[in-house]
Nucleic acid binder design. Sequence first.
DNA 1: TTGTGTTTTATTGCCTCC
DNA 2: GGAGGCAATAAAACACAA
Length: 333
Amino acid sequence: MGVSCSRLIKPVSAGKFLEKAWRLVVVVVFNSNLSVLIQSQRGPCAASQPLEAFFLSGTSPTFLGSRSVMSFADVHQANGSTRPFLRSYDHEDNGDDDLDEYFHQPEKKRRLTVDQVQFLEKSFEVENKLEPERKIQLAKDLGLQPRQVAIWFQNRRARWKTKQLEKDYEVLESSYNGLKADYDNLLKEKERLRAEVNLLTNELLLKEKEKGGSELSDKDAFYQEPPGKAMADSASEGEVSTVACKQEDISSDRSDMFDSESPRYAGGVHSSLLEAGDSSYVFQPDQSDLSQDEEDNLSKSLLPPLAFPKLEDDDYSDPPACFEDHAIWCWSF
DNA sequence: TTGTGTTTTATTGCCTCC
DNA sequence: GGAGGCAATAAAACACAA
């Protein structure tokens, strides 16, 4: 077992010459009454392996082949032959320079047999890291180079990691889908409740109108009016204290105040706008109800600017800073 | 048979640890 | 500094449809 078979064997893809060379090899093998042995040594996975696998010695520095290869070597020795088969073939008995060149090509990679892979898989299940002693032992048991065992474990860890990532992704994806479904349901519920509030608000307003608009109290009137106009009117009439009181109410319940669908303002603000879900008009004075002079007066009055920024749904929780200023200003009266 | 995509084996270069 | 692990990659082996 002196000569490294990995140095002797040339890749099959080398061309037609290889085919010729391998035909020679096969002929010699058959002539050596080993054909039956070879057939018996071929594992299920070795059917597609080149015949070179059967000529590898156990001392190959780069690749030792499958277990069957080792068995073959053992049997070969048991048959009384102490010389590696290929060595006697190409280097001593055959002086073909082409063959010599052929067998000095780098080793081709070969797949492990099913048995080898199963053995490695079981070992991997026990422990996916490889201690040096274990590596040596596995290599011995499988008839492989320790480096091959190490490489197999390394690649196996990489595959395991990839699979694990895929599993983690699936878990996260299903979790995300569940959360998204919950979120969508909550959105629908929110819309349903909002529509219900609108409906109830309209019914309430209708009932109040039926009672008679003249019977509306100042307070009701205030809530029926856009706050800007209500405050402007009140201010112009010298009812500052009332405004301040209303403003106190406003500031104490500002989350409701900023809800465009709040029952308080649904009747005072353009209902069409509310229905359209546009909350930007909530605190804007109803310009259509003001003459040009009134508008001028309004702009020149002591009232702060009433052009509140447009509010989005997400803004309901916190009032804009200008509103805070406005509330403070009201209290300063 | 051949082209193509996937899997497996092996290499290389970098990094970490002792 | 050497050993070992890992990511990226090459390349052979394999599977399979056309």
